[in-house]
């Protein structure tokens, strides 16, 4: 291809993909290849496409994505470790016409914040919860998470996770799917173009569910942590496909509306 031909192609009207206008220009602090970057991008794209930037409030967690607020150009609150769903509950109840989403990792959501996420989902808060599960604590240096697979080596399970010592890996998304307040519970990933597109559709659906006041939408994104896993980003994706997907299978766990309150009245009548 000649330079002239390239110039012909690279005209603004021929752009078919560019950085979301809702992503700020700063460089993300994430390690090369980190799934957080893709997930952030999808949230930004969805908010941009729905035209709800000035009606959206994000809640960032403690962990690698603590700085999520630096990258997506909406109003943000940074929560204490595990408490994002509590913040989101208050925000949504006080501002019912706004869009509220939480963004949490597996340590934040499934360990220290297990109570907050379960109760927010059980109350059926009309919020979107994004759960990035890479089976490890990234920010603090690769320690065992509640979702770490048995046998998986981490900084605090140097010989592999052992059930007798460390308990079982937690499928918190399956727990959440059982809660009557949830309307949409799905497990997705972002390692291939197809997976990314599916996750984007899931995020968009979750925001639309919020608009329709259907209940809590919960999206797990099975992710990599190549630094924590100590392998390169491409191998990390492969490892995730070969191992994490077996224990955390992708797909929708629930897609309906929250339970009808009427159906709960029979028990005391």
């Amino acid at each position: 291809m000649t330079d002239q031909e390239l110039k012909e192609i690279m005209k603004p009207e021929n752009i078919v993909y560019k950085k979301s206008g809702l992503l700020r220009d700063n460089i993300m602090h994430y390690c090369p290849g980190c799934s957080h970057g893709v997930t952030h991008k999808l949230i930004a794209e969805v908010i941009e496409e729905l035209g709800i930037k000035e009606q959206t409030i994000g809640i960032s967690p403690v962990g690698c994505s603590v700085f999520a607020y630096n990258y997506i150009d909406v109003d943000w609150q940074e929560a204490a470790h595990g408490r994002a769903p509590a913040l989101a509950t208050a925000v949504k109840r006080l501002l019912p016409d706004k869009y509220v989403f939480t963004y949490q990792g597996d340590g934040d959501l499934a360990s220290i914040g297990a109570a907050e996420i379960l109760h927010a989902c059980n109350r059926g808060e009309n919020i979107v919860c994004i759960f990035v599960n890479n089976a490890i604590y990234g920010m603090t240096g690769g320690q065992m998470a509640p979702t770490t697979l048995v046998g998986m080596k981490t900084a605090t399970t140097p010989y592999g996770r052992n059930v007798d010592r460390n308990g079982y890996p937690m499928k918190i998304t399956e727990l959440i799917a059982q809660l009557p307040g949830t309307c949409y519970v799905t497990r997705q990933s972002v390692e291939t173009p197809a997976a990314v597109r599916k996750t984007k559709q899931a995020i968009k659906k979750a925001f639309l569910n919020q608009k329709e006041k259907k209940g809590t939408s919960f999206i797990e994104v099975v992710s990599t942590c190549n630094s924590g896993w100590k392998i390169d980003p491409i191998k990390a994706n492969k490892w995730m496909q070969d191992h994490l997907f077996k224990f955390y299978p992708l797909g929708d766990l629930k897609d309906s509306v929250k339970d009808d309150p009427e159906s709960y009245k029979q028990y005391i009548e």
């Binding site: 021929n14 979301s20 993300m28 597109r197």
Partner: peptide, 16 residues
């Protein structure tokens, strides 16, 4: 561009 975590790729497409 779809899988790029840092949104560094702009893609163009045209009929030539």
């Amino acid at each position: 561009a779809t899988v790029c975590p840092d949104s560094v790729i702009t893609v163009y497409r045209a009929k030539i």
